[in-house]
Structures are given as structure tokens and as C-alpha cells.
Design a protein around this nucleic acid. Sequence first.
DNA 1: GTATCTGCAAATGTTTTGCACTCCA
DNA 2: TGGAGTGCAAAACATTTGCAGATAC
Lengths: 144, 144
Amino acid sequence: MIELYDKDKIVNILKGYSIRVTPNRLKVAEIILNSEVHPSIDEIHTILTKSGKNISFTSVYNIIKMFQSAGIVKEIKSKDRSRYDANLKPHSHFICKNCGRVFDVDMEITNSNFPTSINGMSVDSLEVTYYGLCSECNNDNKDN
Amino acid sequence: MIELYDKDKIVNILKGYSIRVTPNRLKVAEIILNSEVHPSIDEIHTILTKSGKNISFTSVYNIIKMFQSAGIVKEIKSKDRSRYDANLKPHSHFICKNCGRVFDVDMEITNSNFPTSINGMSVDSLEVTYYGLCSECNNDNKDN
DNA sequence: GTATCTGCAAATGTTTTGCACTCCA
DNA sequence: TGGAGTGCAAAACATTTGCAGATAC
């Protein structure tokens, strides 16, 4: 994992969203901002717990939902559970049908010129999602 | 609701997928094939129950999952639950952030020229989803 | 001190499974 | 009579909430 955001940057990001900085929020922000495979709430909790950082599932939940409201992260509905994506530059997603992990894909369809209204429905965002097997699950398949 | 598929057509569709025709399967297929707002399993069950057609939730579940395996319907992960779309011509979806209902949108991005491989991941489908408020929820908002 | 933050434990709601019963070839 | 179809009741999960105690400003 490439550490794109260090503690100082994360503190500034949270402050930029008027979110008070707490140790728990830093922990969660660090994971979500630096993760390539957008983790679920459960996975964030597991990652932190395994690395000795104590936090409850509920707190991860509260923090992620707060980040979501603030606009720091976006919810991605994957195979079985929601995953969360730090929402910085426009991009698409690849969802693995087997493991459910979500990978970023460079945006190929411009996000700027989608219709703002379709049949009386007001459109505020557009998502492009690719589905298939990730490289890891592809290899697992070959082994069988 | 425009009745696009009558019983005979549905029987043929099921047979085309080598699915044995039973009264329950006909009921579910009729709903899912002729629905504009792609219903959830629960909604299909409710629609049938309210119209006096007896079927259990489990059977709707079994049938939808069988249709999904066969390729008749596709799962759409909406707001809180999965919805199911009879998968006939390529199109996009509009998901209402408020009520979670899913509406069809004429495909604007061609489904044919997406990459078959991205960074070792094999791509087999592409979905374009618009998010916003449907016309009904738009109106509800105005009333407040 | 008081509002915020945290987290246990329980509730909720959807999805899934186990198993027994029914039905028809 | 046996395999497929059905459905009740319960399990399995992810998600969400209530509430009480801890923390920080």
C-alpha cells in the first residue's frame, strides 16, 4: 500500500470538512484514504484490531457514516456488503464478482456532461462500474 | 404498466432457458418481465399476495435466484435491498437516492467497446448508473 | 460541566438455509 | 415412487439504534 496521506495531511482533510480530530477518526481516515481495495466497515475494523489499534465496530460504523455525510467517502454496494471509497478524483470501479473487492479504474467517461434531468428525475451523479474477475480470482480459477 | 409479455411469450422465454414452467414461476416471471420499476423479492411477493395469488416469500426467493443463475434477471443493488431487472436489451439505470426505486434509462454508452481486461482483471460487463431523485420524490420535496 | 465521542448489547431488516410436505411425471 | 417444487420456521448476516459510561474542550 502506498501511503499517500500522512497524519498531517489527514488532520488537515478532516479539519477541512469541519470534523473534529480524534484518535479513532484518524485511524479510520488513514485506512480509508490509503486503501486501494475499498474496505467495508467490517474490514476496517478487522484491519485496525489486528494491528493492535483498539476500536469498536460501532465506532468504525459511526465514523464511516459521518465521513459519508460529510462527503469524504462514498458508499459502493458490492457483492455482499457496502464498501467505502475516499472520494477524491472522479474514477470508475471494477467489482470482482467472486471476492467482491472493488478496484479503481481510471475514468473513461466524463462525469461532467451527463444529463441533469431524465424524464423528470433529477440526476446528481453518474457511476460507471465494470464487473468481472480480479487478477487474484482469475488465478484461483486457473488452479482448479 | 404496459403488458409487454403475455403468458404465451413468458412460457416460451422460460422454455428457452430450459426452465420448467410452473404456476409460481409464471407469476414471478410476469411481474419481473413487465415491471418498469424493478421490484425487490419482497415487493414481488407483496404484489402477488395483494392480488390474491398465493405464493410464499421463499418461493419468490428461489425463483428469482434461479432466474438470476439462468440469466433472465440481473441483480441491482439499490438503496437498502436488491432489485431485479429482466435483462433483455442493454440499458442504464437511474436509482432514486430517496425511495431506492430503479428506473431504466436508454443506454448512452455503448456496451460493446469496453475493455475486456484492465490490469489483469477480466471484464465481462459494464454498468452505468445515474443517481438522484425520481420525479415522485422530487415532488415530495417541493411540498415540504 | 456539558456536549461530544465511544462502544456494548440488542434490535432491525434482508437474505439464506434446513427440512418436511406436496405434486406430478 | 422419486425428483422437483414449495413454503414454514429458523438461522445467518450486515446494518442500525438505544443507552450508558468515557472523554475532551
